[in-house]
Amino acid sequence: MDLSTINPAILLASLMIASTPILLAAIGELVAEKSGVLNLGVEGMMITGAICGFIAAVETGSPTMGFLAAAVGGAVLSMTFGILTQFFLSNQVATGLALTLFGLGLSSLMGQSYVGLKPPPVGDINFGPLADIPFLGRVLFQHDAMVYVSILIVAAVWAFLKFTRAGLILRAVGESHGAAHALGYKVVAVRLAAIAFGGACAGLGGAYLSLVRVPQWTEGMTAGAGWIALAIVVFGSWKPWRVLIGAYLFGGVTVLQLNLQAAGVEVPVEYLSMSPYLITILVLVIMSSGRGRAALNAPASLGRTFHASS
């Protein structure tokens, strides 16, 4: 057993890559949930984004087009959920699960002729001398653009919710759709926008998997990442920066357990494979008990169906 062989700078750099898909999906879901919508279809939107992005990137040769297509694909699919829950007033839990089922099927149909192809490479951003700073250079300045985009999205969501009027309206809708409606805000429109944003972000997260982290297309390649994103939102108690921490923590535990094994530390593998989930549960418990405030931070109308005349 030799822990000294694990280089913390490399570990941190790896965990940022490993966490980016769930971070993107989680920050999108946060916005949807803040508007009072619980969309359990993240996995379905992610995998759809993964294939849309992959197809676009392969066909155009441009990863940028790929990510754009992924965002559009995720958003379009999320509108199925949006229309059903907002206009047809269907149950959000069931509709979200159906969305995942449908997305998994749809994506593998779309991807049938894209198996075994290589997408155009996504290069790292060149920060010049910054990349050579000891430790920090490796951790912070040797990544591809999407890692930074994901952090920028987190910052933007934070600023949007905290400082803008539109953000205030979104939160109002999520807290009490009845009151928001009475004040003249368009509850359904706000929610549809939030759902679409969630879909777009989930799509980006999926495309990060198929274009950067893995990079290839295989059926079911998200392998549960969408569900983790859902957990991260609660873990982060609906606060953007905490969601970032949560995603990095989860990615970190996953990467660390593989690194411990690679370093030859005698670890019970099955139990370590469980550890990210167990630790997430533990943190959920701590977050939701403690001062009880985190739990109260949940949008009050989360998951409840809104109908104007009710």
């Binding site: 062989t5 694990i6 280089n7 490399i10 570990l11 790896s14 890559i17 490993a18 898909p21 998997l209 982290r213 893995v214 290839q216 295989t218 079911g220 390649m221 998200t222 392998a223 990442a225 996953t254 990467v255 593989l258 690194n259 094994q261 690679a262 370093a263 030859g264 593998v269 099955e270 494979s273």
Partner: peptide, 27 residues
């Protein structure tokens, strides 16, 4: 030889992470 068990037959992301972890160990 360093062996990493991923406890899955199929999870491209985890396979990628495991490869990275091995590389980080100097493999």
């Amino acid at each position: 030889m360093n062996v990493v068990w991923v406890s899955t037959w199929f999870d491209p992301a985890k396979e990628a992470d495991a490869t990275q972890a091995l590389l980080d160990q100097g493999v």
